[in-house]
Design a protein around this nucleic acid. Structure first.
Length: 570
DNA sequence: TCTCCACCATGATTGGATCT
DNA sequence: AGATCCAATCATGGTGGAGA
């Protein structure tokens, strides 16, 4: 088995191990090679550097130099026996496990662990009392042992942390005021492990700051209602690692407090290589993709809209001071008000572009945007008033007399008129904003109604256009036929041109008085034969054109007549 | 107005403590 | 009785202040 000692910080050492203990059937620390009486076996350590090991060099590294490093500990090497301490090197770090007499095998309830660099058993701090640290806030400096390092009673994970390592210094770095009590380590009965007795009851060790009284802090407000259907936020790689390893560690050491397990796993995470971390990071990335998908679906769901309504109601009831009741930046759905979309860095109200979402968000909360927004609001209000006010209405008439329930819920002209804000918004309070947004919503509802009627009109227009399109598509088939015919005519025209060239050539030859030598069949006859063939595939206008061409070209009347006869056939 | 950096909240987990 | 906080840890993303 190879153990590893990890220096977590100046005051904390973790010992982990890999591989199964092959030297004996017992788990680590209970007995190893050289331990015949069941006591702690020989344990020592050498630096990771094999060269140093070969040279038999004693570790002389300082604590600072070892920070973040991992030391390999080999069983059977220079180490110590708990019973004799004879072979213990100077100031060797060690982890001592004390099992109660009834416990055999794995550490069980009642076991205690001392982690120390001290070699002198007599100096082991078995009991310590420490006054509460001033301040009572979260510990900031790892120079001092954390409150969680305090023993927590029987069966707890007792940590005795000493900062020095490597034989240089053995001075414990506990805060001033630390008092060391008498040791409570007792010689075990024959055949049993050493047992550590911790001071019981209220006298027990108090390390670090006073434990805060738990429970509900006075005056703390309840959180706003949460939307249960909201997708679970993505889990980080570290948390995935934590959850996975915690169950294993918990099964192995059921007595270990939750906070201790977390500390150990945090140290392991810090030591984890990038390759091994990659798996968890990949899982976290997948979870993030899942979250994005679910969030998009959620934000377009009715559940989300219902949640927004509930939250708005909660804020209206609790006011701005209530938790979640503040008109927080993150809570403002600017896209709804400003008509913007995610990733859109353009403010449509102010016609301005921004380089980041952050800057845009800041702008949306700024005075200029507010001014422009209210300007638009005034415009909208005026337009809305024009819509509401029938031309025949007399001035001074009660305009907001509701005719229907829906109308009664809508904003009145008087209200809207009074709502038009001044140039300065310094005196605006939340009531104004609530009213403002409510009116805005009402106006948007009105706009929505207008849009619906526009949509209906557009649908009617679309239907008419579709009819026209169908008619046009009917005419298209006729157009196709004509195009085919045109293509065939073009082909014929090309053939005709070719033949015409041939005829011209023949006529040219006849002009020079060339005659066929062995027969009386002359060029005119040959031209006639060509024309017969051609005219059979030509329509009347082209036939006429052909005849005319031949006549003007001085061809014989025989050929012309022949062509005319042929073409006159049905 | 924009960028940079420090700080804070949130997520997961259990069990005890305390408030509502 | 049920709800919530708190302890520990790290990664991540949002927020706020300072300065350019």
């Amino acid at each position: 088995m190879i153990m590893y000692i990890s220096i977590v910080n100046r005051v904390q050492v973790e010992i982990t191990w890999e591989e199964v203990w092959t030297g004996c059937d017992h788990p680590p620390f209970q007995g190893g090679p050289g331990a015949s009486d069941g006591r702690l076996g020989h344990v020592g350590f050498v630096p990771e550097d094999d060269a140093a090991e070969e040279m038999g060099a004693e570790p002389t590294l300082t604590c600072d130099a070892l920070l973040g490093e991992r030391l390999r500990v080999r069983s059977g090497s220079v180490g110590f026996s708990l019973g004799t301490m004879e072979s213990l090197g100077q100031n060797m770090p060690a982890e001592l496990l004390f099992l109660p007499p009834s416990c055999a095998g794995d550490p069980c309830p009642g076991s205690s662990v001392i982690r120390t660099h001290s070699h002198d058993l007599a100096s082991l701090p078995m009991q310590l009392t420490m006054p509460a640290l001033p301040g009572g806030t979260k510990e900031q400096d790892t120079e001092e042992p954390k409150a969680s390092a305090a023993p927590r009673g029987s069966g707890s994970h007792f940590q005795c942390d000493v900062s020095a390592l490597g034989g240089r210094c053995c001075r414990p770095r506990f805060p001033p005021g630390t008092q060391w009590g008498p040791g409570a380590l007792q010689e075990p009965a024959q055949g049993h492990q050493w047992q550590l007795s911790l001071a019981p009851g209220p006298e027990r060790i108090k390390l670090g700051r006073q434990k805060r009284k738990g429970g509900w802090p006075k005056g703390k407000k309840r959180k706003p209602p949460k939307d249960l259907s909201v997708p679970r936020a993505p889990t980080t790689g570290y948390v995935i690692f934590l959850n996975e390893q915690r169950s294993q560690l918990r099964a192995k050491y059921p007595d270990l407090p939750f906070t201790e397990i977390t500390k150990i796993l945090a140290a392991q995470w810090a030591q984890l290589s990038q390759e091994r971390k990659q798996r968890y990071i990949y899982e976290a990335d997948e979870d993030k993709q899942r979250y994005i998908r679910e969030l998009q679906a959620y934000q377009s769901s009715e559940a989300y809209r219902a949640f927004l309504r509930r939250r708005a109601a909660h804020r209206a009831l609790c006011g701005p001071g209530a938790p979640g009741g503040e008109l927080g930046r993150e809570d403002l759905d600017f896209s709804a008000i400003d008509g913007t979309e995610d990733g859109d860095l353009h403010c449509r109200t102010c016609h301005q572009c921004f380089s980041s979402r952050h800057n845009k968000r800041e702008h949306l909360l700024g005075r200029q945007h507010l001014h422009n927004l209210t300007g638009e609001f005034k415009k909208d209000s005026a337009e809305y008033l024009r819509h509401l006010e029938p031309p025949e209405e007399e001035e001074g008439r009660n305009l907001h007399k509701p005719e229907s329930e829906e109308e009664a819920e809508g904003p009145s002209v008087i209200e809207l008129g009074a709502l038009a804000p001044g140039e300065s918004f310094a005196s605006l309070d939340l009531c104004f904003w609530q009213e403002f947004i409510w009116k805005l919503l009402k106006m948007k509802e009105f706009e929505l109604g207008e849009l619906r009627s526009t949509l209906e009109r557009a649908q009617v227009e679309q239907e008419a256009l579709q009819r026209q399109l169908a008619e046009f598509q009917g005419g298209a088939s006729q157009q196709q036929r004509l195009e085919v015919e045109l293509a065939s005519l073009r082909t014929c025209g090309l053939v005709l041109e070719k033949e015409l060239e041939n005829l011209n050539m023949l006529l040219l030859l006849s002009c020079f008085g060339l005659q066929m030598a062995d027969t009386d069949v002359g060029p005119a006859f040959l031209a006639g034969a060509h024309l017969v063939t051609l005219s059979q595939s030509l329509r009347p206008p082209f036939t006429e054109l052909l005849c005319t061409t031949l006549d003007t070209g001085g061809s014989s009347g025989q050929a012309t007549n022949l062509t005319r006869r042929t073409s006159s056939k049905p």
